[in-house]
Amino acid sequence: MSKCLIGLPLGGRFPKDIKDYLEAHKIEVIENPYGRKLSEEELMSLIKDCDATLAAAEPYTKKVLEVAKKLKIIARMGVGYDNVDLKAATERGIYVTWTPIPELAYAMAEHTMALILTFVKRIPYMNQEVRKGIWEPEKWGALIEDLYHLTLGLLGVGRIGGEVAKRAKAFGMSIIYYDIVRRKDLEDSLGIKYVSFNDLLSLSDILSIHTPLTPETKGMINEEAINKMKRNAIIINTARGAIIDEKALAKALMENRIAGACLDVLSEEPPTETHVFYKLGDRLQNLILTPHIGYGQHTGRAMGLTAAEDVVRVLRGERPKYLLNIEVIK
């Protein structure tokens, strides 16, 4: 019987019927016994006899793949794949797939807009004060903003960035973007405007990041970039933490160089005591953090089943539907 490792613990965003689906296709499921992200050593121990894996954020390094002698497919539940050594996988003839399904783009766009609204409307801060018996609407009326007159800048307009643009348009926002690929379709349908990277920084009231993490984008939002932004600007990151130089961002927030930031992703997840945003407590009140959780159970189920379907295809001897490393079949 073939074996498939599931990297994430089941029962949260990834319901247990994903396991049922695999077992119905006579695939033995190896579950993550730790209830958290697997380390490289833990992954090496669990994957060595597996034919497939439903991958989350655990590190599929060359070292891991060298011990996975039977592995045929890494089915990534998500659209980020910076935790997978694509070159090493391709060299070993391992399929790497992803789940670029509409549900994920919808959910991530919703979370992006939620972060924008949460900060712009100062909801967490007003909630804290009202709970303490403080009722000062005039004070907050001078601090909250309205989206319809603000400019949203999108760094990257792929599937998720495009869905964010649609939702921001519904709020009446002006939308500008920078990407290595022009989106003429969205320029025509939504009236979004292509600008240079420097203009994106200087013109955006809200900068929302939707680009993949690559050697070119790592640290792209650094101190130099932040210094080009408006003092009342907000940075939103639901893409990958390492796209931002987090130490530079922390410095800018402490100095009120920009108004604030909302981060769903960090360069180290979960952060440890050496991370600049570890256990902030009451510090940096102009920063909102969420634990890389931009989608809920409905979307998690759709992603998990999509990845599982590709596992079944490959173990049947078929080609997967959502293949990333096309070179593996050449």
Results as ranks from 00 to 15, higher is better:
1 M>N: 05
2 S>G: 00
3 K>C: 07
4 C>T: 14
4 C>D: 09
4 C>H: 09
9 P>W: 10
10 L>R: 10
12 G>N: 12
12 G>Y: 01
15 P>A: 00
18 I>K: 08
20 D>S: 13
23 E>F: 01
23 E>Y: 02
24 A>P: 01
25 H>S: 11
25 H>D: 08
29 V>D: 07
29 V>T: 06
30 I>Y: 00
31 E>M: 07
31 E>H: 03
32 N>I: 13
33 P>Y: 02
35 G>P: 14
37 K>S: 11
39 S>W: 12
47 I>M: 07
48 K>V: 14
50 C>E: 03
54 L>P: 04
55 A>I: 03
56 A>L: 08
57 A>C: 09
58 E>K: 09
60 Y>L: 11
62 K>C: 09
63 K>V: 12
66 E>H: 05
72 K>Y: 03
74 I>W: 07
79 V>D: 03
79 V>Y: 03
81 Y>G: 04
84 V>T: 08
86 L>E: 07
87 K>V: 15
90 T>R: 10
92 R>N: 04
96 V>S: 05
100 P>T: 10
103 E>K: 02
106 Y>L: 12
106 Y>V: 15
106 Y>N: 15
106 Y>F: 14
109 A>S: 14
109 A>G: 13
112 T>Q: 00
113 M>W: 00
116 I>R: 01
117 L>H: 11
120 V>R: 09
125 Y>I: 03
130 V>M: 10
133 G>K: 10
133 G>W: 15
134 I>S: 07
136 E>I: 02
138 E>K: 14
147 L>F: 11
149 H>L: 10
149 H>A: 12
149 H>E: 14
152 L>P: 13
155 L>Y: 11
157 V>F: 05
158 G>T: 06
159 R>S: 09
164 V>H: 04
169 K>L: 00
170 A>Y: 00
173 M>A: 04
176 I>L: 01
177 Y>M: 01
178 Y>W: 05
178 Y>Q: 10
181 V>W: 07
184 K>D: 14
185 D>K: 09
189 S>H: 02
190 L>N: 07
194 Y>R: 13
196 S>G: 15
196 S>Q: 04
198 N>L: 10
203 L>N: 08
206 I>N: 08
210 H>K: 10
211 T>Y: 08
213 L>P: 00
214 T>Q: 10
214 T>L: 15
218 K>M: 14
226 I>R: 08
229 M>C: 01
229 M>N: 12
232 N>R: 14
232 N>K: 15
235 I>L: 04
239 A>R: 11
240 R>A: 01
245 D>C: 07
249 L>Y: 06
250 A>I: 03
252 A>H: 01
252 A>P: 06
257 R>S: 01
258 I>M: 02
258 I>S: 04
265 V>L: 04
269 E>D: 11
271 P>W: 02
271 P>I: 04
271 P>E: 05
278 Y>W: 11
281 G>N: 06
284 L>S: 06
285 Q>S: 15
288 I>W: 00
290 T>M: 01
290 T>G: 01
292 H>N: 06
297 Q>P: 15
298 H>G: 10
299 T>S: 11
299 T>W: 05
300 G>Q: 02
301 R>G: 07
301 R>I: 00
304 G>W: 06
305 L>S: 05
306 T>H: 03
307 A>L: 08
308 A>V: 06
308 A>G: 01
308 A>K: 08
311 V>P: 04
312 V>S: 12
315 L>C: 09
316 R>Y: 15
317 G>S: 08
319 R>E: 15
321 K>W: 11
324 L>A: 04
325 N>W: 04
328 V>Y: 02
